[in-house]
Design a protein around this nucleic acid. Structure first.
Length: 674
DNA sequence: TAGTGAGAGGTTTTT
DNA sequence: CCTCTCACTA
């Protein structure tokens, strides 16, 4: 057979495109879009159309008759993934909706359920979220008798941190200890022991934590050539957004995925790297050419988001960074309003100012959902939330504790998990402990019977328990589970049955069950969307809905809600007006980072991310925090008082010229209800 | 063996 | 401020 080589007419005037790429993109963006073969690294500053470039490239590929299903879009956070996929679906036509993509974790989950058997992974595996994983660690820690008081052995959260860091940075436990936990260095044999037990536990119970998803995907691709080729050939074009947030492990996965074709474009900004606590390193992005020799580097510097005064300030902020790769952002957007700095007396005043200013902005015609309040840690918004509720301003809050992590949600979901994987001991434990009279010991016995019998539910009715006072309750659980096992009911119906059973226990367990019941109701509503239990449980672990954190109901259109968000969750998004609150040393930068220069640098990048979200208005607020309940925060060991404005502001050389200092004058007047 | 109450300690960000 | 742990009691 004779082979004909046909050259793609990239950019040739003969080809008719539905989108006029050259007109809609600047030359650098166009270069990134129109070169589709081989490895590319796009260094893109904040607001320079990073995601836009990715999406246009997607459309370009589709217009060149590339099958959308062979295009894979990956990123680290769900938020970014959602945004990316949403925009992908709208750009050209319905073809773009078929593109594959999501977070690295969800892609790993998908691949492992499909091909996992090649590395002895059962497709029904359970995903352990952070809390589950910590519970397991804790169990092991107790079993190994490492919880003696005299000894300062790391607690479960710390242990998980250590394990996770070691995996995500691809370095040994000992090295993590030496680098970041020198005080636990002597405990390393026991820590390694815990790690080993943890690994065995998961293996035995068909369970994977978040990190395992990535580790096993890598293992699958590395050990099985056939699968690797198949997957790599399925996804001929790979694009990774927010690459600066990916870690070593994810970089290696990217290399494996692209092994058959090397068509990879990664997009990122080293100045916005804010996930080092889970192994991301802003230098990773610069290593891309090492992984992909011959990679072309493209830099995007024109900002399309912010007016010049804001950009001047954000450039000044990042200028203070100790280490950065040169990149000078410029903007042609007209505007004269300088960022405003407000010195408030305390948190109440801060909250009052934000609330009032939000109302004024809305009067001026800025819809609520185009305004955001950003903060370092979720609880920083507590006072503000109270204020917003009393002023009847609807809002959504992103970040912080997740809906699916709430104890009562996990309780109900435990029944579903057992239905899906009868060996899910963590779920079993959870639901058994809810029964009065059953503690860890009895639960362990019941569990052992079920496991030994190969997952036989009838073991719940074993004569061994017949005389116990909890037998009656065991029968009820048995009735519930056996009724639902293998039944044709929809996930929502199964869940409803579980909630019905759970209700009396629930009211006993929680004083505030009335408030929590609302969560159960929204869980039921969410469940309606699913046709399979597996999909529902996967989403619970990997893409948890952020429903619980809603304030007042929106009065206007559904979307008209003020946005409250941690800065981490605000990444990649933009708003007309942005408030950054709690700019106080100890809050932001956070207390824990003050000692360490690297951490401090990360906090600075975080501040940069926050400030670059704003299009037209930017407000900085520093409360002096004298009167409030967080007083224990105001001293550290040396007696330093944290009522100083954030050093990120104090250190800026031309702060006075770059900003307008606002003064608050308070009148005793009620704020107009919304 | 389960449930309770006092005391200590740590407090962020995400999949 | 909340969560977790330990020791005590029934």
């Amino acid at each position: 057979m004779k082979k004909y080589k046909v050259k793609k007419s990239t950019g040739s005037p003969k080809k008719h495109y539905l989108i006029d790429y050259q007109a809609q993109l600047n030359p650098q963006q166009y270069q990134a879009v129109a070169n589709t073969e081989g490895p590319y690294l796009v260094i893109a500053g904040a607001g320079t159309g990073k995601t836009r470039t990715l999406i246009y490239r997607l459309a370009y590929l589709v217009e060149n008759n590339i099958n959308p299903r062979s295009i894979l879009l990956l990123t680290f956070t769900r938020k970014a993934a959602q945004e990316m996929m949403r925009r992908a679906a709208t750009i050209l036509d319905e073809r773009c909706r078929n593109v594959s993509g999501g977070t690295f974790h969800s892609f790993a989950n998908f691949s492992l359920r499909k091909y996992g058997l090649h590395i002895q992974i059962h497709p029904n595996f359970t995903i352990l979220d952070r809390t589950d994983a910590e519970d397991v660690i804790n169990m092991i820690r107790t079993q190994l008798k490492l919880n003696k008081k005299e000894r300062r052995f790391p607690r479960k959260t710390t242990l998980m941190d250590i394990i996770s860091k070691s995996i995500n940075k691809c370095i040994s436990i000992e090295k993590v200890l030496a680098n970041e936990y020198p005080h636990y260095k002597d405990e390393s044999p026991d820590i390694l022991n815990v790690v080993q037990h943890y690994r065995d536990f998961k293996q035995e119970k068909m369970a994977m934590d978040y990190d395992d998803l990535l580790v096993n995907l890598k293992k699958l691709l590395e050990t099985n050539n056939e699968v690797r080729q198949k997957i790599s050939n399925t996804y001929r074009y790979i694009m990774v957004d927010e690459y600066q947030d990916t870690n070593r492990l994810q970089a290696e996965i990217t290399v494996l995925l692209a092994s058959e074709h090397k068509n990879v474009m990664v997009v990122g900004d080293d100045s916005q790297s804010i996930y080092s606590f889970r192994g991301a390193n802003f230098r990773n992005i610069m290593d891309f050419p090492k992984f992909f020799p011959g990679a072309t580097v493209i830099t995007l510097e024109q900002n399309y988001r912010s007016i010049k005064p804001i950009l001047d300030l954000t450039n000044a902020i990042i200028e203070q960074a100790k280490e950065k790769y040169s990149k000078e952002l410029f903007s042609e957007i007209e505007g004269t309003q300088k960022p405003v700095y407000i010195d408030a007396v305390d948190e109440d005043e801060q909250a009052a100012f934000v609330t009032q200013r939000v109302l004024e902005l809305r009067e001026e015609g800025v819809p609520l959902h185009k305004i955001a309040v950003l903060f370092r840690a979720s609880w920083h918004a507590n006072e503000l939330e109270v204020e917003l509720r009393s002023a009847n301003i609807p809002y959504v809050k992103y970040g912080g504790l997740k809906f699916t992590e709430a104890a009562h949600i996990k309780d109900v979901v435990a029944y579903m998990r057992v239905l899906h994987n009868v060996f899910d001991e963590i779920a079993w434990l959870r639901l058994l402990l809810l029964i009065e009279g059953i503690g860890p010991t009895s639960a362990g016995r019941i569990l052992a019977k079920i496991v030994h019998s190969g997952g036989d539910l009838n073991q719940l009715l074993s004569q061994d328990f017949a005389k116990k006072k909890f037998f009656n309750d065991l029968q009820k659980v048995h009735a519930l589970l056996s009724r639902l096992t293998g039944s044709r009911l929809k996930p929502a119906e199964k869940l409803e049955a579980a909630v019905e059973y759970y209700n009396p226990l629930f009211e006993l367990k929680y004083e505030d069950y009335k408030r929590r019941r609302l969560d159960l109701e929204s869980l039921l509503r969410i469940a309606e969307r699913y046709t399979t239990l597996e999909q529902m449980l996967t989403d619970m672990a990997l893409e948890p809905p952020d429903t619980s954190q809603v304030g007042a109901e929106p009065t206007g259109s559904e979307d008209e809600r003020l946005v409250l968000s941690t800065i981490h969750s605000a990444k990649g998004l933009e708003w007309h007006s942005v408030f950054i609150i709690h700019l106080v040393d100890g809050y932001f930068p956070a207390m824990q980072s003050l000692e360490n220069e690297e951490d401090l640098e990360e906090e600075r990048r975080l501040f940069y991310v926050a400030a670059t979200r704003a299009q037209k208005n930017l407000y900085f607020i520093t409360p002096e925090l004298e009167s409030r309940s967080y007083r224990w925060h105001t001293f550290d060991h040396s007696g330093l008082i944290f009522s100083e404005p954030s050093r990120f502001i104090a250190e800026l050389p031309d702060f006075d010229e770059l900003t307008e200092i606002g003064v608050l004058e308070f009148e005793e007047e009620d704020i107009k209800p919304f």
